[in-house]
Computed example of a mutant assay.
Amino acid sequence: MTKRRLNELDLLRFLAAIAVVIFHYAFRGYAGGNMSVMPYPLLAEPAKYGYLGVELFFMISGFVILMTASNNTLKHFFISRAVRLYPAFWVCCTITFIITLAIGQPRYTATFYQYVVNMTLLSDFMSIPSIDGVYWSLFVEIKFYLLISVLLAFKKIEKIETYLVLWLLISAMTEAFSFGKLRSILITDYSAYFIAGATFYLIWTEGITKTRLSLLIGSLALACYTAIVFAKLLETIYPTQFNLVIICSIITIFFMTFYLIATNKTIAIGAWNWTALGALTYPLYLLHQMIGFMIFNIAYPAVNPHLLLWGTTALMIAASYIIHKKAEVPISNLLRKLLSTSLVRVRG
């Protein structure tokens, strides 16, 4: 049976992105002390939990990437990920770099060498600072892609459920006993979200089983544990206290939402076309943080903070839509053709 397109995932992507935007604009920038000069106390308290939008992104990725990998070869998987990651990133990184040079000083600086390395999406692996701090999550995603690529290369993707169980068990032990190198390779501080997303995909396609239910329970427990550890770390960075019950409740809501999606209880929401919102999510995530902070630092306090925050948010959404339509789509089409042709020639 052909499965329907899950339009509700596009809505989830957008909500996750907006949560991160509000986290940065209403809390992170000012609370960090050296990012933005504009406080926004009206939303600061709820906005500080918006960073969990990234964890929701990772759950969505676990679902979608397994969907992509299950129906493709390693070659097609590589092309799909490159086409997904690079075009919007190239455009947004370039825009952020230019604006940083134009209005960022003295608070923000960037070098041409830094920009060139960033454009490869390998800056983290080369210990070169990112042009924008939000890029950190892309390096987590890339590690996840590499793990899936290994399974594709050895034609083991059909055994994914077994590997998800192993990944969860190793992640739990690694987090409990702090095995440094293994923690980095297997991204164990975020693996619970990828494992959960992939498990929900299996439930969506093949139904729920005791093993999959156990995977979800274990993933939820690990996700809450790592989230609590991270919240304690954030409290040493920001002048605030996080409510651990709220954090675990939000994560539980993520799991409940995905369960409803995987068991086709959200068809009414999926009947709406959320594709446009989902499409602008990636450019919005890449573009908003540093540019927003630079706008705040120039315009505040001359401009009303409410107008500044919501006006900048609207500007970023509009810019992201234009980038998607006018740049990301045509570059993606061209890149897909080039990669497909190149890989065929190499194989030949």
Rank of each mutant, 00 (worst) to 15 (best):
L52S: 07
R81T: 07
K326E: 10
S342P: 06
T100Q: 06
L284D: 00
T312A: 08
I250P: 00
A196Q: 12
Y238M: 12
S249N: 08
L66A: 08
F177K: 12
T100W: 11
V54I: 13
V245Q: 13
T226N: 06
L56H: 08
A69D: 07
L309A: 08
P330V: 04
Y145S: 02
V245K: 14
S149H: 11
F254A: 08
S127T: 13
T96N: 10
N118Q: 14
G270Q: 10
E55M: 05
F230G: 00
F154E: 05
F242I: 04
I253T: 13
L52M: 15
G33K: 09
I261R: 11
A172Y: 15
M67W: 14
A299D: 01
R345P: 00
K155F: 11
F194W: 15
T263C: 08
I298S: 07
L280F: 09
A271F: 06
L280N: 01
M35V: 02
L182Y: 14
L56C: 04
I251A: 07
R345T: 06
N7C: 04
G62R: 03
F230E: 06
Y51A: 03
A302Q: 11
I99H: 02
G50H: 04
I323T: 09
T341W: 15
R345E: 14
I103A: 03
L169C: 08
I128S: 08
R84Q: 08
I22W: 03
A102V: 12
V150A: 11
T94C: 06
T252Q: 12
T257G: 03
K159D: 06
I269L: 14
Q105N: 09
F139T: 05
F293V: 03
Y193C: 05
T162K: 14
Y259I: 09
F23G: 00
F230V: 01
M119V: 09
G292H: 02
V303W: 13
S36G: 01
E328G: 03
A279T: 02
A327M: 12
T73K: 15
I79W: 08
N71Q: 15
I160W: 07
A88D: 05
A17D: 01
T211A: 10
G53C: 05
I128M: 13
V117H: 13
F89G: 07
I251Q: 09
Q105D: 07
L220Q: 14
T252P: 01
F77I: 01
I98H: 10
I60R: 09
I322H: 12
I99W: 03
F97A: 04
L164N: 02
F200H: 06
P87L: 15
E45F: 15
L151A: 05
L74F: 12
L43T: 08
L309C: 07
M173Q: 05
A223W: 10
L315K: 09
S249T: 13
D124E: 12
W90R: 13
L280C: 08
M1H: 14
I95C: 01
H76T: 10
T263H: 13
D10L: 02
L121P: 11
Y113V: 11
I295F: 00
R84T: 02
Q289M: 04
I128D: 09
